[in-house]
Design a protein around this nucleic acid. Sequence first.
DNA 1: CTGAAAGCGCTAACAT
DNA 2: ATGTTAGCGCTTTCAG
Lengths: 334, 334
Amino acid sequence: MRATIKDVAKLAGVSTATVSNVLTGRKNVSESLRRRVNEASAELDYKPNSIARSLKTNQSHTIGVIVPDILNPFFAEVLKHIGYEASRKDYQVVMYESGESVRQEKKLLQQLVESGVDGIIDITSRLDREELKAGFSVPLVLGDRVAFDSVGNVAFAHTDNHASGRIAADHLIERGYRKFACIAGPVDATSAARRRLEGFREGLQEHGFTEQDLLVFLCKFSFDDGYRMMNHFLDIYNQEENCAVFASSDIMAWGAVEACKSRGIRIPEQIAIIGNDNIWCSKYIEQGLTTVEYPAKELGIRTMGMLLEALNHGGVFREREVILQPSLCLRNTT
Amino acid sequence: MRATIKDVAKLAGVSTATVSNVLTGRKNVSESLRRRVNEASAELDYKPNSIARSLKTNQSHTIGVIVPDILNPFFAEVLKHIGYEASRKDYQVVMYESGESVRQEKKLLQQLVESGVDGIIDITSRLDREELKAGFSVPLVLGDRVAFDSVGNVAFAHTDNHASGRIAADHLIERGYRKFACIAGPVDATSAARRRLEGFREGLQEHGFTEQDLLVFLCKFSFDDGYRMMNHFLDIYNQEENCAVFASSDIMAWGAVEACKSRGIRIPEQIAIIGNDNIWCSKYIEQGLTTVEYPAKELGIRTMGMLLEALNHGGVFREREVILQPSLCLRNTT
DNA sequence: CTGAAAGCGCTAACAT
DNA sequence: ATGTTAGCGCTTTCAG
């Protein structure tokens, strides 16, 4: 059986309060007693029971993280950096996948608060304004989710997705493409996908293109859907024009690339593809995928940073919204 | 403030013991009281405080998982399925990355038990026999780590890595290759890498090849190291022979492929490459990477299954070792 | 079948 | 500066 604070107190000949005080360091204890306590706890190899501590202090030092799919390198990278930051600050992270399902997301959110986490980071949330309006019983940071008039203890960190769409449009137009498709992801469900499409559309319009020049495909944020949508597009596409497609995540862009390859269509000669995210392996997709960089590492660090900040200040956020900037990452598919 | 069991008891006009009994269902309670308790707890939206429960029952319903690197799709997949299984059984998963460092691994292991997890899954552990000999204070499943005369509450699940090496060797020889290199990973640190190399070597020897015919490169299990090692090899390699390389993980194989591409070396005409793992994207590496399938999903499911089994039986394992079988996954790089 | 009460291991008032 | 003690929210004997 593991030694308890009582054992240490007895061995050191002091009260449990004194032991607690030297271990937490929250109160002054005389040098001599401090020494005796430290020796005793070393001798017994005493480790505080963190569950008992949590019960008493009402803090679990645990945060919950929800990502859609851990196999998507973008989310894996965000998660990795959330983990780093958490470790540095002595927080645990419990990880869940929503699988791009609102139902699942809601269930997880509820489970998480019931399980007693101190705070939550939810990446690409599908919850709408109303569902957040009432506030939340623990601080919640929504990553990669456009902000709204924020209430209660929820905060936002995301890249300017509208700008991402603009960057893609500007680049494609400058390159001389004149017909466009957008594999847009779950536009109705996530604001990230929606904003990218809006930015893209706006960019085209400002250069005089119309809805006639753009084909939009809605799907999930997955390789398989990128592949499928590209195939649908190629089925109806007659190759007479100078055409480019914007896939609003690299994993979909990758799927699109493979769909082309499987039909023997050359990129970018016969069709151009630009992605969004710049996951680590984009460099190696088809000799280098042109894409719009989304600073995943930064997102992880910032979401965790905001959450910790709130946790250390009674659950209130100092910053309510952090916006990161995307940038063009030029390679060989456009 | 969240309702407690006392609030429910008061509202229902019963004792807290009765509330506990109906909620846990461990004892018979009369129909009438059961109804009143359920109504009261519904009205107050009562959720048991799981931390208090943990303190009392000494079970956190949390398990710790350590993987080397979550960006490696192989580990991401294992983790995904561990997560699925955990969710199905109402367990939480706290996730950590060891970054292929023993020091970090040990630190995490200790942290994990101190934090009160019920059990631990450690993928590609670098701990040696001696360090495990003493047993462990919670059940521990080592995934992808060759077993030894197991003691205490530690168990093993892994693929027959020796067979993987054999499969690679047999295939390469059958294809007509006569000179070999192995990008072998951290052979000294992890038994998985060591066993793959041993199997590969043995396969070569049985067909009459000698140490003269094999060049071995030690490195980390990463894309970058695969890339670097392949470059080293190409620096000293004169292309006169029919040559093949076995990279003992797909992520390294991918790096090796890219190194070849960057030098304009054609695969498999000028050099063949076979990997190990069959991560989801191997299908798309260089028109399809030939590899040895390692059933990652199965590994996740089995490690978690073993752990849960132990958790439900006083911390003792029924199976001490599970061995999965690899198989050749033939594609276009050999 | 039901309730009273002890106690899991710790922290934080409150006394001394 | 140090000790005494109540109590976090729950489960679980043990009596009734």
